[in-house]
Design a protein around this nucleic acid. Structure first.
Lengths: 149, 149
DNA sequence: CTCAGTGCAAAGGATTTGCATGCCG
DNA sequence: CGGCATGCAAATCCTTTGCACTGAG
């Protein structure tokens, strides 16, 4: 993939300003956390993150994930395994869905045809408005066994 | 809804034979658990279940939910709140999706147009086969705020 | 400087498990 | 009867929190 480094600094810039707007600091620890997630390119659990960068402290990572989720920078994914997964939020990663392995708990990103995507979105919007429900985003996951399991 | 009682005994019958086939007993406790879920008609957490029928013991409910999930009778839903939700599995309840309230954690069942449903399924099947992923089922949830929140 | 952020260790809380007893088949 | 199922209480383990210290702005 060309321009990887540029892409990463773009992400840092974007996140930095977004945090600043909410009176949060973009500290070294947060920057490292974001780098780990960006470089993995797929949802990670806390152990994944701490293993990838052992300088990060558990409690700080959890706290920062929380801050970043609340700032709309990171997305929390509950897949049903032991640990919650986290990935960069859609404004940074683009809208997508997941393949969830029910054996190993792994998660992989996938993209739908935009045609199908629009239809789904339209359907959901209709249904929501009928229930007085205010939609924020949808999640569409395929559960099964990955190639390795 | 006409024939509610019949519907419930149908469910018990179906579950009973399914459990028998897997060398599990359909005990009083399990029957009560299933009744609670069937009568609620929407996904419930463990506290919901125990509140609905205080004779049920926490640990037994958890153990039985586990058995029933493994037997394909109950489905586990991880919505991201404190508790996991459970509902009767799709063979009993029909294929459907969820409206998930990110304020109160409540979950409501919804149904999609069968046309949209087929398109989604087709898309996912295509994507999965390209990754060597074996699909089992998909989940499609709309996250937002319910009418009460 | 000041206060948000950090790291350690300890607490919290949903879920699981050990063990003696009860009940289904 | 024999073994799966139950219920209580204790253990487990992911996640959160208290507190004193550090570093960003």
């Amino acid at each position: 993939m060309p321009g990887d480094t540029d892409h990463l600094s773009e992400i840092h810039l974007e996140i930095g300003s977004r945090l600043a707007r909410q009176d949060h600091r973009y500290t070294t620890g947060r920057r490292h956390l974001v780098s780990v997630l960006a470089q993995a390119g797929q949802p990670m659990t806390l152990p994944d993150i701490v293993t990838a960068d052992p300088d990060l402290a558990q409690s700080s990572v959890y706290r920062n994930l929380d801050v970043l989720v609340r700032s709309g920078v990171i997305r929390r994914i509950s897949a049903g395994g032991d640990h919650t997964h986290f990935e960069l939020a859609e404004p940074l990663l683009g809208h997508h869905h997941h393949l969830i392995c029910i054996s190993c708990g792994g998660i992989e990103d996938i993209h739908l045809d935009s045609e199908v995507e629009m239809l789904v979105d339209q359907s959901l919007t209709d249904i929501a408005s009928r229930s007085g429900f205010t939609p924020i985003h949808h999640s569409l996951d395929l559960h099964g066994h990955c190639a390795d399991c």
